[in-house]
Nucleic acid binder design. Structure first.
Lengths: 194, 194
DNA sequence: TCCATTAATTGACCGTGGTCACTTTATTGA
DNA sequence: TCAATAAAGTGACCACGGTCAATTAATGGA
């Protein structure tokens, strides 16, 4: 008998999420304040923390949802056959992940499951992304001396690296794309004859 | 005529850094509180922020110094000739970088130069590390189809990835080392004949 | 219908990083 | 030697995430 969740609860949570989305829409993720959210939702501050263990948890859900949208789009498209196609397929995701330094930091902190039982939304999107990319690689013209899973993990590492470097000095999306292409070329299609 | 720095300034700064190191020694980086530091240093809170733009800046210096110590040790040792030797050479650095989740996050946030002119201590250690590894690779039995600089960048990406994953679920150093070896094997010595 | 029990909500309060107008101390030049 | 000027230091104050004992609302018998 663990039936207990009241409809009131759902309504309050929905109000909080809607308010947060509105605030973010106006001023971006970094500028989101818990006080502003509860004010707009018309509830007390304590209520927020009754629904989310901390501010980051809400961020995890909101940012995770956005990533999932990107991934659904990516999964829908045909399997890329070249590295540049692959990079271009991933670019919408990369663009969102690098839209704000704060967003990138949150994603980074949540990119792995904190514990076995408590996997966050963002952590799940990373597994999802790895699955998509791994599936691409299962039947691809790229290297086969290591597993698609490992290659997918490596791609994630390179994406994070490219985005991190992109936040340094200048914030130019073209340089980032070129860097990713370079990384994935070396990672997916090494040419050891040279 | 931009001669102005008083000896008092140096003394105060030294007191602050010493106090911070003492606090960290006792309770770890994450537990460091600015109030505790200024209390021990015998100065007012405002003085702290006259010397460091924010708490993270002090962390950058303290953590950066520790990383530099690791790198000096690494640079002193003979050039590793196998991948496992290379990983073992890097492990002291990896061990420090993963000693606390908080430390890793600070390192991550500061791993790149924020702007051209204002490069932090940690950011400089990353360049330093890349140089060391790149030098190893210049005369190595590993792949030569891409530049040593690119390989070094990739190694950094894989180290960060391995440490990040290691914070998930369980915090076991052996698994981390194995993962790094696997990554670097695939990165440095691809076998596309397979 | 009413009461007992559990769930949801509240808001005063706290911890901690960071600010800034003001005070104190050092330096410079006549 | 002594203002005038600049540098260093101060601490009350603020912003904001997070806590918790108390309060209010919902639920399920009898």
């Amino acid at each position: 008998m663990l039936k207990a969740v009241q409809s009131r609860t759902l309504k309050t949570r929905a109000k909080l999420i809607a308010a947060a989305e509105a605030v973010i829409e106006e001023n971006g993720y970094e500028a989101m304040r818990v006080e502003e959210v509860v004010l707009r939702a018309g509830v007390a501050k304590g209520t927020f923390f009754a629904h989310f263990p901390d501010k980051e948890e809400l961020m995890d859900q909101l940012i995770g949802a956005r990533i999932d949208t990107c991934l659904d789009q990516i999964a829908k498209a045909p399997t890329p056959q070249t590295i540049t196609d692959m990079v271009d397929a991933l670019m919408p995701l990369v663009a969102f992940m690098s839209c704000e330094r704060y967003v990138f930091d949150v994603i980074f902190r949540h990119s792995g499951a904190a514990t076995i039982d408590k996997t966050g939304v963002i952590a799940m999107t990373f597994e999802h992304q790895a699955k998509i990319v791994s599936a691409w690689l299962k039947d691809s013209p790229f290297r086969r001396d290591v597993t698609p899973d490992l290659l997918a993990e490596g791609i994630q590492a390179f994406l994070m690296q490219a985005i991190a470097l992109n936040f340094c000095a200048l914030h130019c999306e073209f340089a980032m794309r070129d860097r990713i292409v370079q990384y994935l070329q070396a990672w997916l299609a090494p040419d050891i004859r040279a």
